[in-house]
């Protein structure tokens, strides 16, 4: 299914915002976090470009599970690296183990329940970090209120994950595809503004 002209504009704006984040928006946050954010926003950028080229069906590819896991995980690791430097190594080890577990449980012989549990666990933990850490930072006065937009963005990533799960469970594609470009745009806008005015 090819995106409508309006959806194409939204996706293009999303690609521009993600490019801005990679090139400019994450400057000055330290090498570790820059690397993690680059992976996160880079994945978002490439996914949007592929949707623009191939259409929304690209989201049905099996690799999307791993890639869509990498997005919240890398952003969460970046956030931890930036604001909780003592947790940098543990978060990196946790992310590595989580991603490895997701990849291993996607193998054909792995039981379906294991794949589901692992994905839910990794998404859940990274989503929780990504959602709650900005709130804690704002409440403790470390960052401005605008940083709450990062929490909102992470909630939208959660919603995106939910829609992708519905997609794999056979819900009507056209219904779900209608919301995806708007969702991609809004979550990227939230992250961009949240980082810009932190």
């Amino acid at each position: 299914m090819k995106p409508s002209p309006l959806d194409r504009v939204l996706l293009l704006l999303t690609a521009i915002l993600a490019s801005y984040q990679v090139a400019i928006g994450i400057e000055g946050v330290g090498t570790f976090s820059i690397l993690a954010y680059t992976i996160g926003f880079g994945i978002l950028l490439i996914a949007i470009l592929l949707i623009l080229i191939l259409g929304l069906e690209v989201l049905e590819l099996p690799a999307v599970v791993i890639v869509s896991t990498l997005l919240p995980v890398s952003l969460a690791v970046g956030l931890v690296g930036q604001y909780l430097p003592t947790w940098r190594v543990p978060s990196l080890i946790g992310a590595g183990i989580g991603l490895l577990a997701v990849a291993l449980t996607r193998r054909p012989r792995a039981p379906a329940w294991a794949a589901m549990v692992v994905v839910a666990l990794v998404h859940g933990v990274s989503g929780l970090v990504l959602f709650s850490l900005p709130i804690v930072l704002v409440l403790s006065g470390y960052t401005k209120y605008a940083f709450l937009l990062v929490s909102l963005g992470s909630a939208l990533i959660g919603l995106l994950g939910l829609l992708l799960t519905f997609l794999r469970r056979g819900r009507p594609k056209t219904d779900l595809f209608r919301y995806l470009p708007t969702l991609f745009f809004l979550l990227t806008l939230c992250f961009t503004l949240g980082f810009a005015f932190r």
Partner: peptide
Amino acid sequence: MAWGFLRLLGVLSAGLLL
């Protein structure tokens, strides 16, 4: 090239390699 632009070029290159 500024590091930011170089990073972005790296991301786009990763897409090509992928």
